[in-house]
Design a binder for these strands. Structure first.
Length: 874
RNA sequence: GCGGACGUGGCGAAACUGGUAGACGCAAGGCACUUAAAAUGCCUCACCCGAAAGGGUAUGCGGGUUCGAUUCCCGCCGUCCGCACCA
């Protein structure tokens, strides 16, 4: 029997081959066991991966392997989010076709991923750029179209006037095109949209049912959907303004109808129809509107933009007091696509309105009086008041709370009429916008539409799907190659047969990832969306991925699932029952004296925060830990770790110490610690086999204290780690394994001292070794297989069960209670587990430390918390 | 600006629903084994006073509730994240 080192380099490929040969991770839909669907967010095949990419896959793998041991039919699939801009950039920069670039990357990344020993069902591997995948996406598009969930409308895009091309937001850098450097314009194009807003309320409400999602993510989605309740109010134009306006009234949206008596201006969006109407005959207004259009759409451009207004000279009548009129401005900060594109300004109670009023000399009338403020002297100067209070200066609202005033105004305006319409209408608004999916790009899923001059946009007949991307395209010029692919583009109209053109826009890649989890359910490539299989597998029991997808990907996926249900394609509404957002792996950064980034293997650490270069010994600037990235070179290649320490060491390290939702720092000493532990398990199992009972030894009738202690530790381990893994507390699971290993080591040392080893201890040693191996199986699967063989098994541990826990061993007969006097610990006492509080009290009062503290006086009170603590109040 | 989270030894952290603060690991120091080193095993390791026994102080800071607070409440300070002209 060998107690040499465990040779990961030899063992790991062997076991990976064994798993693969036996096909044990192949999942069948007709398996009768209860299902468990665990998946990690699929990667974009950008090229080589680094160890930082591996953390979420390892976490998912631990759960998948654990659930298999617990008797579940586990689905743990993998795929590639393989459409996207980087492939096109590679084509432009290096002349490689996006398709070859993508598939080459998939091949090498797959090899690297497989190195990690993940228990994936590669039979269900998908790539979103494969026609066998996107054919279904095109069908879904047509389903959405037929169910009024997809539509076409004009929308603004970033336009590069030099390259004559549309730019994605991330290609606009400081308002300029990333390649041409030209100032980006906003231009309107006809584009396809998915009607996610139809589900706004459902998507919001259902967040409450997602109790296994992080609160943070639910909150982010809630804010993103952004529901607000308010009132639409018609402001009639005053008589003098009617002719110029050419309309009878302007509709505004407000969430603060209570402050209506504080209104001092109305502001229209530059895109508001009335603003445009007026601009037609007023060049200075047209110029103002044009001026509003310059500048980027980015957040910081908007933030720094000065708030500007243009006085139209028109006035409107106050809806609650016909004697009052309010001036109408056009203002650059009013958005056309939220509410009605027009607002009323109440400067006293809205900071932005106040700034605007001060700038243009408008009146500021406070109408909400803060509690305890004096109505005679309260005034708003520089800071608007948006707190609670009661109404004043507000006629029939005076004295009401804000909530009551809102209600009173709504009731009154609902009864008033402007023409046929009620003057006020309660309205719920959402911040959420419909999802524009058109991208003027080549490397994406083609939109299955043909544009005909006489028939308009015509869906591609379903029997002609998929519309596949043409391979014969060039990237030597800016713009979308599909626009130039004449042979592909020019087709007859499916309806009338006249010459027509294909839609050359492709879908946003977020569409690809919005239903791939449904695709995994099917094990038949010809039925990519299999309703019965989806019903069987969905929802995903545990989804694991980065927090960066908290909003878009996860919201789009939720929408897609609901939309598909509305189309009758699936029976589920929420795709992900459990969500976990894992932290990143970070690593220190290193720079040479010239300021160039260095790879970790190019430096030698010489102390805390100091390092020198391996070659030449020049001093190295050590930077703080940051997300691993190729550009900063603070990356570690998985194959290097596998070669040096073995993959199990890397897996153990990734799970240890840091809570999985936090960022974890990759360090040399940390990985060495993990390596030592892997070796320790190997050694302990070997020693336990040597000292322990034979595999077929009968269980002794009785166990002495030493053997019992070890058995308690081993059964406690299996119990604890099961709980830890279920709750994804991998760092705590690792700590519990360490704790057990310490106890195991002591038992082994004790056994060494005995000769011969008593039967009960020998049995316990062997049992403990078995349990340890089973428990670490999900975390360090190769090591566990190797130990499993040593233990005499001819099966695979990957197919073994989780150890049976003897519940009786988890409870002790006696229990040690800490004793406090006045809340300070003054000792402890060991009592029978089932001792009554009175019995405990009696024992406690006899304690020297307690007597000393009481100093002969009777205690005021004794609190006995059974099986927890005793507190004596002196 | 709005919303949220977090703050515990030299470091990563643990502490279940208000009940022994610092489990477990890393680093550091000591000892054993060794010709020596590596590896391994054992021991020490929050801070202050003390030779020790023991005592005191400690979970960002200040209050509060409680027999008892890392945990609950209020106010500050700091760090991080999300949204951001949303009427």
């Amino acid at each position: 029997m060998s107690t040499d080192r465990y040779n990961a380099r030899d063992a790991e490929p062997r076991w990976q081959a064994a798993w693969s040969e036996r096909g044990i991770f192949r999942t069948r839909n007709d398996d009768p066991r209860p299902k468990f669907f665990v998946m990690e967010m699929f990667p974009y095949p950008s090229g080589r991966i680094h160890i930082g990419h591996g953390r979420n896959y390892v976490m998912g793998d631990v759960l998948a392997r654990y659930k298999r041991m617990k008797g579940f039919n586990v689905l743990h699939p993998m795929g590639w989010d393989s459409f996207g801009l980087p492939a096109e950039n590679a084509a432009i920069e290096r002349g490689i076709h996006p398709k070859s670039w993508t598939y080459e990357n998939i091949a090498s990344m797959k090899e690297q991923l497989q190195l990690l020993g993940l228990s994936l069902d590669w039979n269900r591997e998908i790539a979103t750029c494969d026609p066998s995948y996107y054919v279904e996406q095109q069908r879904i598009f047509l389903d959405f179209l037929e169910n009024d969930l997809a539509y076409r409308k004009e929308s603004e895009v970033n336009w590069d006037p030099v390259d004559n091309t549309v730019l994605a937001n991330e290609q606009v850098i400081e308002g300029r095109g990333w390649r041409s450097g030209a100032i980006v314009e906003r231009r309107k194009l006809s584009q396809w949209f998915f009607r996610i807003t139809a589900f706004a309320q459902e998507l919001l409400d259902a967040l409450d049912t997602l109790d296994r999602w992080p609160d943070k993510v639910r909150l982010m989605q809630r804010n993103w959907i952004g529901r607000s309740e308010g009132l639409e109010v018609l402001f009639e134009l005053s008589k003098a303004s009617l002719a110029a306006a050419g309309t009878a009234a302007v509709k505004v949206y407000t969430t603060r109808p209570d402050t209506l008596f504080g209104a001092s201006f109305l502001a229209l969006s530059p895109d508001h129809p009335l603003a445009r109407h007026l601009a037609a005959s007023r060049p200075e207004l047209a110029a103002f509107i044009a001026d509003c259009k310059t500048g980027g759409t980015s957040a910081e451009a908007i933030e720094t933009q000065e708030k500007k207004g243009f006085d139209t000279g028109l006035t409107v009548v106050h809806p609650l007091d016909a004697d009052l009129t309010v001036p109408v401005y056009v203002a650059n900060f009013v958005l056309m696509d939220y509410g009605t594109g027009a607002i009323f300004g109440c400067p006293a109670h809205d900071q932005r309105d106040l700034d605007f009023a001060r700038k243009y000399g408008l009146t500021v009338t406070p109408v909400v009086l803060p509690p305890d403020a004096d109505p005679a002297t309260f005034a708003v100067e520089e800071i608007a008041y948006d707190g609670e209070g009661t109404l004043f200066h507000s006629h029939f609202l005076d004295g009401l709370t804000i909530a009551a005033a809102k209600e009173a105004v709504a009731r009154r305006l609902e009864r008033f009429r402007v023409g046929e319409e009620p003057q006020g209408t309660r309205k719920v608004n959402f911040r959420l916008r419909d999802w524009g999916i058109s991208r003027q790009r080549y490397w994406g899923c083609p939109i299955p539409i043909i544009h005909c001059d006489s028939c308009g946009p015509v869906p591609v007949p379903r029997d002609q799907l998929p519309v596949t991307l043409p391979d014969d395209v060039t990237f030597d010029r800016p713009g979308n190659p599909l626009d130039r692919a004449k042979a592909w583009r020019d087709v007859p109209c499916p309806k009338c047969g006249a010459p027509a053109k294909r839609e050359t826009d492709t879908m946003d890649t977020f569409v690809d990832s919005s239903w791939y989890f449904l695709r995994y359910a099917s094990d038949d490539v010809n039925t990519p969306l299999d309703k019965a299989a989806v019903k069987h597998w969905l929802p995903v029991d545990q989804y694991i991925g980065g927090i960066e997808h908290a909003i878009l990907h996860l919201l789009y996926s939720r929408f897609f699932t609901r939309a598909l249900a509305a189309c009758g394609r699936v029976d589920v509404t929420e795709p992900f029952a459990g969500l976990f957002t894992q932290g990143m792996i970070v690593h220190e950064t290193y720079k040479d004296p010239q300021g160039r980034w260095l790879f970790p293997e190019e430096i030698t650490l010489t102390g805390p925060g100091t390092a020198v270069m391996v070659e030449g010994g020049a001093p190295v600037t050590v930077g703080p830990p940051e997300k691993m990235s190729k550009s900063k070179r603070n990356v570690v290649a998985p194959e290097v770790v596998a070669d040096t320490y073995g993959v199990d060491t890397a897996r153990w390290f990734m799970l240890a110490d840091t809570p999985p939702e936090r960022d974890s720092e990759w360090t040399q000493s940390g990985i060495e610690g993990a390596w030592r532990f892997v070796q320790r398990v190997w050694r302990q199992v070997n020693e336990a086999i040597e000292l322990g009972a034979a595999a077929d030894a009968a269980k002794p009738d009785a166990f002495g204290p030493e053997a019992t202690a070890l058995r308690r530790a081993a059964h406690g381990l299996a119990h604890q780690v099961a709980d830890d893994v279920e709750r994804l507390r991998f760092n705590v699971a690792v700590a519990h394994v360490h704790e057990f290993s310490n106890a195991f080591g002591q038992a082994i040392a004790a056994a060494r001292g005995a000769s011969p080893v008593p039967d009960d201890l020998a049995f316990a040693l062997r049992e403990a070794a078995e349990m340890l191996v089973q428990v670490v199986g999900p975390m360090t699967p190769h090591l566990a297989e190797e130990c499993w063989v040593l233990l005499g098994h001819d099966t695979l541990l990957a197919e073994a069960s989780w150890p049976q826990v003897d519940e009786a061993l988890l409870v002790e007969d006696t229990i040690t209670l800490p004793i406090q006097v006045n809340g300070k610990r003054r000792g402890d006492v060991t009592v029978p587990r089932d001792a009554t509080p009175a019995e405990v009290e009696a024992v406690v009062l006899e304690l020297d430390s307690v007597r000393k503290a009481l100093d002969g006086k009777p205690p005021k009170r004794i609190i006995v918390v059974p099986q927890r603590i005793v507190n004596v109040v002196a």
